[in-house]
Amino acid sequence: MSVRSTDPYRRLNPTAIPYLFILPVILFTVFFKFIPIGVSLLLSFTEYDMLSSPRWVGIANYAYLLSDNDLFWTSLKNTAQYSLEVLPANIAISLLLAILVNQELKGVAFFRTVFYLPVVTSIIAVSMIWMWIYNYQVGLLNSILGLFGLGPFDWLRNPKLALHSLAIMRVWKGVGWNMVIYLAGLQGIPRYIYEAATIDGASAWTQFRRLTWPLLRPVTYYIIVMGLISTFQSFGEIYAMTQGGPLDSTTTLGYLVYQQAFQYWEMGKASATAFILFGVIFALSIAQNKFVSAEMN
């Protein structure tokens, strides 16, 4: 066969092949991830302003963050709360959307597109639009709520509301993406399973609870892990809309890292914060993994 005679890989030691296959990715990861991350890990033990040489300070940065730094703890709390608000809402709504647009109906492609649109629109422009919507005195949201005799609410400037307002926007921006992923999951469930259930007389709700939800569990697991990674690092919407305020109520770890690095030139502290963030996400992902596999068994 021609493949056999011309293919140079044929002559290779078979144990080398998988390493060869992962080589490009590993090389890339080493140079553009591991080395920079290693550098940043080292820097987290230094005081470094990026313009003069770093100075070794041991665990001082970690000690500073973890002991008496209320801003760090506030941002950790905000980050956790933000994720806890965004993720469940995102999952519930995107699943609902996915189920709706999975129906064989006319015009369903139009609805899929509408739900997906926010995903592809620039976060900067989207933040601007939402700031106008949330405006206290002349914003669209208060003007609509006013018709029902509600409000007005100071969406972005009330420390009790601001984080929730950002979460609402974030859910809006992100559900389209997870809708597509759930939709794919739904299409992967064989139709005959539902047919059997219908014959057995199970209601739509029961079918969802007993069939759809459990069958989609791997998809949900994946969405949670990805969601944790992305919401824990959220930065763009905060930078554009609230700059962490009011009263630090929207300062998240992702924003804090940016502030330390590029506003205060404290790369050492920024790196230390990032590694604590890494630790938290890592622990949560593992816990989640354990939880899911336990539940599956």
Binding site: T29, K33, F34, I35, P36, I37, V39, S40, M50, I229, F232, Q233, F235, G254, V257, Y258, A261, F262, M267, A270, S271, A274, F275, L277, F278, I281, F282, S285
Partner: peptide, 12 residues
């Protein structure tokens, strides 16, 4: 590697 924010590896 996905869990490290890009900001801290930007300079390296």
């Amino acid at each position: 590697t996905m869990m490290i924010p890009f900001h801290v590896i930007l300079i390296p």
